[in-house]
Amino acid sequence: MSRSQGPSSLKRKRPESNSLSQSLTDQERKLYDVIRSKQDMGIWTRDMKRETNLPDNVVNKSLKALQAKNLIKEVVNIQNKGRKHYMATEFQPAKELTGGSWYVEGSLDTEFIKILRKFCVDFIAELKVATLEKVTDLIRRNGVFAVDVTQQQVEEIVRTLVLDNEIMEVKSNGMGEFASVPIGKVCYKLIGKGGLGGELKAKTGAMASIPCGVCPRISHCTPDGVISPKTCVYYTKWLDF
C-alpha cells in the first residue's frame, strides 16, 4: 500500500474497445455511464437506482455483470460503511471517501499514526528546535516506513502534538538555539525537558532566551488576562534561571 499523494486522484482514462462496448446490455450501459460520470467520488446504489430508474433486480444483476467485466469496483465509504458504493475501475477513490492517508481499507491506521507521532517527538527533542521541513526530511531519510511520508502528514501529526501539549509552536528569534532557523520562521520545541519548560541555554545570555520573545500567544498576554506573566510557568522558570 502506498500513502504517497500524487497531483491527481484520477488515473488516465482508458479507451473502451468496440467489443467491450458491444458486450454491454442497454441496462448495463446506462448504469455504467452513471457510475463512471461520478469519477473518483463514486455513487451509492440507492442513488444510482434513482438516477437510472432501473428496477432493483436489474441494477443488482447489472452491477454483478459490470464487476465481472472489470468495469466497476466496490469501494469503502468511511462515512457510511454500511452502504454499497461503486466507481469505475479507472479511478482511484477520493480522500473524502477513504479518509485520506490515515486510513487503510476503511480503517484508521492507528499503528502508523502512533509510530509517526513518536518519531516527530524524538526528532524535535533531539534537535531542540525543529522546523516542519526538517522533521519531514529526517523521517524520510530514516527509512523506517515502507511508504512515502508527506510533509502534509507530518504537519497534521505535529498539530495534534501541539494540541496534546507535547510540543509547542514558536517563532524563531534568530538567536541562541534558534540561530539556524530564519527569524520569524515557525518551528517547534518539546514542552518539558529540553523544551521551553526545561533548562534554558545561555549561549547568548539569559535575555536572549526569554520565552516571551518566542511565545506564539504573546499578543494575547496581559497582566490580568487569562494568558498572563503571573500565571506563565515558562516566564516563572526563566526568572528563576
Score class of each variant (00 low, 15 high):
Thr160Asp: 12
Ser219Val: 03
Ile139Glu: 00
Val226His: 09
Val147Arg: 12
Val104His: 03
His220Pro: 00
Cys221Gln: 03
Ala146Asn: 08
Leu116Ser: 01
Asn142Met: 03
Val75Pro: 03
Pro229Trp: 09
Lys95Leu: 11
Gln153Ile: 02
Asn77Ala: 04
Pro55Thr: 07
Ile35Met: 09
Thr231Leu: 13
Trp238His: 04
Lys189Asn: 06
Met41Leu: 14
Gln39Ile: 10
Lys81Asn: 00
Thr236His: 14
His85Asp: 06
Arg141Gln: 08
Asp148Arg: 11
Tyr86Trp: 15
Val233Asp: 08
Lys84Trp: 03
Val214Phe: 11
Arg14Tyr: 12
Phe178Leu: 05
Thr52Lys: 13
Ile72Lys: 09
Val76Gly: 01
Arg36Tyr: 11
Pro55His: 02
Val162Trp: 06
Val186Asp: 12
Gly198Asn: 06
Ala125Gly: 12
Gly192Phe: 09
Met41Ile: 06
Arg46Gly: 12
Tyr235Arg: 10
Phe241Ser: 07
Gln92Thr: 12
Arg117Gln: 07
Asp33Ser: 12
Phe145Glu: 02
Ser228Arg: 14
Arg83Lys: 00
Asn53Thr: 10
Tyr86Arg: 04
Ile227Asp: 05
Asp224Tyr: 09
Glu169Met: 11
Lys64Tyr: 14
Lys95His: 11
Leu54Asn: 08
Pro15Thr: 12
Ala208His: 06
Gln79Arg: 01
Leu190Pro: 02
Glu74His: 07
Ile72His: 07
Ile124Tyr: 11
Ile183Pro: 09
Val76Thr: 02
Gly192His: 07
Ile227His: 06
Asn173Arg: 06
Leu132Thr: 14
Ile139Phe: 02
Phe123Leu: 05
Lys69Met: 15
Lys185Ser: 13
Asn60Lys: 15
Lys203Asp: 13
Val76Tyr: 00
Ala94Lys: 06
Thr89Ile: 15
Tyr86Leu: 06
Glu155Ala: 05
Phe123Asp: 02
Glu90Gly: 08
Ile115Gln: 10
Asn77Cys: 05
Ser180Thr: 13
Ser62Lys: 11
Arg29His: 13
Lys118Pro: 00
Leu239Tyr: 04
Leu63Ile: 15
Pro211Gln: 05
Pro7Met: 03
Gln92Pro: 02
Ser101Gln: 05
Glu74Ser: 09
Gly197Val: 06
Met1Gly: 06
Thr231Phe: 09
Arg29Phe: 13
Lys73Ala: 14
Thr25Pro: 14
Val147Ala: 10
Cys212Ser: 07
Asp240Leu: 11
Asn60Ser: 15
Val158Lys: 00
Leu196Val: 04
